[in-house]
Design a protein around this nucleic acid. Structure first.
Length: 435
RNA sequence: GGAGGCGUGGCCGAGUGGUCGAAGGCAGCGGUUUUGAAAACCGCCGAGGGUUUACGCCCUCCGAAGGUUCGAAUCCUUUCGCCUCCGCCA
């Protein structure tokens, strides 16, 4: 959420920045600026009345002790009116604030100044590449053919259980999923200093509001109700990413400055309804309703949040480097930036079976956008007024897509797959094959 | 699921309708004292919002939301969380 005061005081600047995303992003800004100004007047008006009521009530406390019952009764009648006026103003103010917040919650974050211009995916900027495209003296297969032939991947039975966009792993396929997860968590906790978290996979709407998935993107989520209940206020949602529970761990908290940066990593399943992606990636594991992801989340001081993004991106890249998987880093242009992000790097791994780079991680700095929604603050220098922290997160990595990349980049002519060196201790074998 | 209890400032804890944002203690911060430290003593010490160049002043908040009342931390309703006992259960 943007700061309503900042929007009101810097309307043109905010509009210019949001227009870099899209015309729609800047739409309600004037209304918000107006609401913000009107709110200040309403607050002043309300407080004058409240002060009058408070003063009168103190008099009443004295009158109540005096023997003059008539004076007390008369004054009480007067105060009834005043009290009613106060209540009316308070109601008006809270409705006004609710209205303003509702508008504000639908406004995306401002792109960082360094973010390149551009309307969409095609205008993202390649920042660097690592490694080389593997070459094959045979035609590279895609992972779904490889996986099914190796007996480690089964879409048909998954469809029987759950329908489209689900998968079943088997044997060394399952082992590979587990190996990748453990390898990533070990790397981030031991070498990068992250604390491992195992969060709930079902969360309240308030958590999703904190990180920005709600109220705007409900259609992307799986929503659950207790048996017999249709009450939306107690609905729980399956998490679309660990970002949600892990970032909201500190909602409504004031962190100690000396504890920053706080760094968490979490392996969780992620659930996405993929509404509106019909026809996209219908085959294979790329786009599933359920997948595992190791997430990195950091809470940092505002001064160095963009440096911290470079570090966090580096932590995610390290996974690919250690696995020996060729990839590239792209910086998202303003038009392709997610709703909450100020700046984002995507890591795209090379998939020979599809002859394409595919997103395997997305690392973003949200500045104070999520922190304002979730009320996550810290006390600078250990004293004084609390300030909003900056939040960052990135996939480190999407396990399912890493699984794909290992199969496709490490495939052999006979349809077997060589296990990357670093995974062998976790896999107990150096090869996945049918024999 | 049944019965009961509890939610107050960073922590502990008083407060059951009137001047209470809230006693007291601990922790923390600043100072006096001391060669230094400890102890003792004095002061400061929640958040949000409005207003002000600033000092400050004002408003709101005692798990949350409603209600009663001239007035609510205190009474009522609903709700959430935690604890104890019973039931069920991985």
């Amino acid at each position: 959420m943007l700061d309503p005061r900042y929007v009101a005081d810097n309307l043109d600047e905010v509009r210019t920045k949001l227009l870099r995303r899209s015309p729609a992003a800047a739409e309600s800004l004037s209304a918000i600026a107006e609401l913000s100004g009107a709110r200040r007047k309403l607050v002043a008006e309300t407080e004058v009345k409240q002060a009058a009521r408070n003063a009168a009530n103190q008099d009443m406390a004295k009158l109540a002790k005096s023997p003059d019952k008539a004076a007390f009764a008369a004054r009480r009648e007067e105060l009834k009116t005043l009290s009613g006026e106060v209540k009316a103003l308070e109601t008006q103010l809270s409705q006004h604030e609710e209205h303003m917040k509702a508008q504000l919650m639908a406004v995306p974050n401002m792109p960082s100044d360094g973010t390149p211009d551009g309307k969409g995916e095609d205008e993202n900027v390649e920042v660097r590449q690592w490694g080389n495209k593997p070459t094959f003296d045979f035609e590279a297969k895609n992972h779904w053919d490889l996986g099914e032939q190796l007996g480690v991947l089964d879409f048909e039975r998954a469809a029987k259980l759950s329908g489209a966009r689900f998968s079943v792993l088997r044997g060394l396929g399952s082992r590979l999923e587990r190996a990748l997860s453990a390898f990533m968590l070990d790397l981030h906790t031991v070498e990068h200093g992250y604390t491992e978290i195992t969060p709930p996979y079902l969360v309240k709407a308030s958590a999703l509001e904190g990180t920005g998935q709600l109220p705007k993107f409900e259609e992307d989520l799986f929503k659950t109700h207790r048996h017999g209940s249709e009450d939306d206020t107690e609905a729980l949602y399956l998490i679309p990413t660990a970002e949600v529970p892990v970032t909201n761990l500190h909602q409504n908290e004031i962190l100690a400055a000396e504890d920053l940066p706080v760094s968490y990593t979490a392996l969780t399943p992620c659930f996405r309804s993929e509404a509106g992606s019909y026809g996209k990636d219908v085959r294979g594991l790329v786009r599933q309703h359920q997948f595992h992801k190791v997430e990195l989340v950091r809470f940092v001081e505002p001064e160095n949040s963009f440096d911290e993004l470079e570090k966090l991106t580096g932590h995610a890249e390290e996974v690919l480097k250690k696995l020996g998987l060729h990839y590239r880093v792209v910086e998202l242009c303003a038009g392709d930036l997610g709703f909450t992000a100020a700046k984002t790097y995507d890591l795209e791994v090379w998939l020979p079976g599809q002859n394409a780079y595919r997103e395997i991680s997305s690392c973003s700095c949200f500045v104070d956008f999520q922190a304002r929604r979730a009320k996550i603050r810290y006390r600078p220098g250990g004293k004084g007024k609390p300030k909003l922290v900056h939040t960052l997160n990135g996939s480190g990595l999407a396990v399912g897509r890493t699984w794909i990349a290992v199969l496709e980049q490490y495939q052999n002519a006979d349809g077997s797959v060589t296990v990357p060196e670093v995974l062998r201790p976790f896999m107990g074998t150096d090869k996945i094959s049918t024999s």
